[in-house]
């Protein structure tokens, strides 16, 4: 039943000084698919790898808008993420309504970290099984934070969480020094390269499994963002690009690597624009053609 005798009660330390339930919660985060966050002087971005629960299901969303100036990427239990992100939305709205001020990013992250911490100290509760990467901008510029179910919130230049995130971290660690002064397209290309490193051998980034969130002014010198389609992009607010919206971003990244623009051809489902019929706002409708050979990690019960 229990793996060890300190499992039944999350508030009791093991003789080794561990709270096992907290450690298991951190494992739940590792089971979720990868999310990557990065920050430059002007922008903060999130990149996530979406998974679907089955061949007839949509790919599960991993990016949540909190407010104009804050958004999160999740890894772990989606239901816990919804509880926490709803709380963040309330905090953000409360600040706007009482002070007329967008809540400072560090404070909104600290508010959920404080909630998570109580769950590690009070009897009869369990830790949240989800980790967040939070991007936002406030009067002190763009920010990237990691929230973990242990109740911590740390700020990063670049970070990754979720399955195989160590590979992305390796990429980020060897490249982060150039992020500070990177342009938005450069930053995204680095992010996609890092995200690509989290994939299994036979998998590749596609319109269906890649989503990107951006905070900061859109880049006028490139066409990676369809500004006409997004008022948020025009204003530099939090926006998410997925499905067709992410096409130009992926193409630009492949071009920067000297690969064919349309991606690897032997891919199970060639992600052409005609095939993915879904548009923004209809993500819950099942997608057109199910992927022919979708197996293993793409289909799990998590997320």
């Amino acid at each position: 039943m229990f793996r060890n005798s300190y499992d039944s009660d999350n508030t009791t330390f093991s003789p080794q000084g561990k709270l096992f339930q907290v450690e298991y919660a951190l494992e739940a985060v590792k089971q979720g698919s990868a999310a990557i966050g990065m920050r430059s002087k002007t922008h903060a971005i999130l990149l996530t790898l979406k998974r679907s629960t089955g061949e007839l299901a949509t790919y599960q969303k991993k990016l949540i808008r909190i407010d104009d100036h804050v958004g999160v990427a999740i890894a772990g239990l989606t239901s816990d993420a919804r509880v926490l992100s709803n709380f963040m939305r309330q905090q953000a709205m409360r600040s706007r309504m009482t002070y007329g001020r967008a809540i400072p990013v560090g404070r909104i992250v600290q508010s959920i970290a404080d909630r998570a911490q109580t769950n590690t100290q009070e009897y009869g509760r369990r830790p949240y099984g989800v980790g967040f990467l939070v991007i936002g901008q406030d009067e002190t510029g763009p920010h990237l934070y990691e929230f973990s179910p242990a109740g911590t919130a740390f700020e990063y230049y670049a970070h990754s969480i979720g399955a195989r995130s160590q590979s992305a971290k390796t990429y980020l660690e060897s490249n982060f020094e150039s992020f500070e002064n990177a342009t938005l397209p450069e930053l995204i290309n680095h992010g996609l390269s890092a995200l690509n490193d989290t994939l299994q051998q036979d998998k590749s980034l596609s319109l269906k499994n890649t989503s990107i969130a951006i905070i900061g002014p859109s880049d006028s010198s490139s066409d990676i963002e369809n500004i006409k389609q997004s008022a948020a992009a025009k204003r530099g607010n939090f926006r998410v690009w997925e499905n067709e919206g992410v096409e130009n971003l992926l193409k630009a990244w492949r071009r920067s690597r000297g690969e064919p623009e349309d991606g690897p051809q032997e891919e199970t489902t060639p992600p052409t624009a005609e095939q993915s019929q879904s548009v923004e706002g209809s993500e819950n409708a099942p997608q057109g053609a199910p992927a022919a050979g979708t197996t293993s990690e793409d289909v799990t019960m998590e997320e």
Partner: peptide
């Protein structure tokens, strides 16, 4: 006290006025 950790500027006159109005 919060600004000690995040260096975020304190409430502006507009923010304080909004609070008082509410």
């Amino acid at each position: 006290a919060l600004a000690l950790t995040d260096s975020h500027p304190s409430l502006s006159p507009k923010n304080i006025y909004e609070l008082l109005s509410n």
